[in-house]
Amino acid sequence: MKFVPRAEWGARASRYALAHIASTRGVKVHYEGSYVPATLAAPDAHSQCAGRVRAIQAQHLADDEEDYSDIAYSAMVCPHGYVYEGRGAHRRTGANGSTGLNSAHYAVCAMVGNSGLTEPTPAQLHGIRDAIEWLRKAGAAGDEIRGHRDGYATACPGPALYAWVKDGAPRPGGTADPGPAPGPKFEPYPGAGWFKAAPRSPIVTAMGRRLVAEGCGRYRSGPGPQWTDADRQSYAAWQRKRGHTGTDADGWPGPSTWAALRVPKV
């Protein structure tokens, strides 16, 4: 992998502390969504790429409406296949559209636009796969490879990149990503009302064990099958770990934090 750390491309310091995430379900692929000059893909144009990443970071830091902490992406990939470290591994992205979506997937952005350079180069596709595999190894990213538009109303990552993602994100001349490896099935979200009815179920025990494994257990004994205030306190700690605050961290499980917890099927 042709990896460019933040210090090497001249990254500015983050405005705020970046939220930590232990793992994600996978990675979402993005594009710039604006004009990218076709000449950027020329073999002798690579010297311009670090400056482009700096400009995107500066644009994001100047966006008072979004109030970004840093460049929104986990990584950016230039047409020459170099992977520029953005927020990086174990840092919640700011690019996917909401706190829940940002917690569920990392974000890798290709230097491809909606005009000018609209088709990723073969080197760039290799670079995107390099970035995904780096985030799997260094950031505990799961097996999913999705487009930004999967789960959020946007044209990103554009028709060419999205077709590649839907085809399994194959390396040029290689095979498609095999997708999630066989493994344990996870409990589907039972719904907020199920928890508020104070259920007694092995699902509650399995949930509690996952919360303890994530360092969020607030149990004096247990966990056990009966939903109690200790379960709610533990789940609130998990919500805060995922970056939620206020009423979004009230201890009642929601669909996005439940999916991220990955409670094994019982």
Rank of each mutant, 00 (worst) to 15 (best):
W227A: 04
A249Y: 02
C109K: 15
A75S: 09
E66L: 06
R149I: 06
V112D: 01
G243Y: 03
A22Q: 15
W194S: 06
K28P: 11
A259F: 01
Q57F: 08
C78M: 04
S256P: 05
N114Q: 11
P122G: 13
A95Y: 02
V212A: 13
R52F: 15
G243P: 06
R149F: 09
G183K: 06
P202G: 13
Q233H: 09
D229V: 00
K28T: 03
A160Y: 05
I128R: 12
G222M: 08
T257K: 01
A19L: 15
I56V: 14
V83N: 06
A236C: 08
S69E: 12
P225S: 13
D248H: 13
Q226H: 12
E85F: 07
E133A: 12
C49N: 07
A236I: 01
G127K: 03
D167T: 04
G151C: 09
G168K: 09
M76V: 14
A237T: 10
T39V: 11
F186V: 12
A123L: 12
E32P: 03
Y31L: 04
G193E: 02
R87M: 04
W227M: 11
A13N: 09
A104Y: 00
A236L: 05
P79R: 03
A41F: 05
G33L: 02
A13C: 05
A155N: 14
S256R: 15
K265Y: 10
K265V: 03
E133F: 08
K265N: 12
K166H: 03
R136C: 05
Y235D: 00
V53I: 15
G254V: 03
R210T: 02
A62M: 06
Y162I: 11
A19K: 04
A45R: 07
A141K: 08
G217D: 12
S115V: 11
G168V: 07
S14R: 10
R232A: 10
A259R: 14
A131I: 09
R262P: 02
R171H: 05
L211E: 00
E85P: 02
S201W: 04
L117Y: 02
D70Q: 11
P79K: 07
R209Q: 14
P37H: 08
R149C: 14
M111V: 14
A50H: 09
K166V: 15
G183E: 02
I203F: 05
A110S: 13
T93P: 03
S221P: 02
D229C: 00
L135S: 00
G251L: 11
G215A: 03
H90R: 13
F3V: 01
Y189W: 14
A181F: 01
G191T: 07
P264T: 04
A107H: 00
Y189P: 09
E32Q: 11
A141C: 07
A45N: 07
V83D: 04
R171Q: 01
L261D: 02
C78Q: 04
R92A: 12
A72Q: 11
R92I: 14
V4E: 07
I21H: 05
T228N: 12
G147Y: 03
Q124K: 01
S47P: 05
A75K: 00
R87Y: 00
A62R: 15
G168S: 07
W227R: 08
Y31H: 15
G94F: 10
S98F: 02
P255K: 05
A213Y: 01
T121P: 04
P182V: 08
R136I: 01
A110H: 08
Y82E: 15
Y106N: 08
R242K: 13
D150W: 11
I128D: 00
R220S: 10
G208I: 02
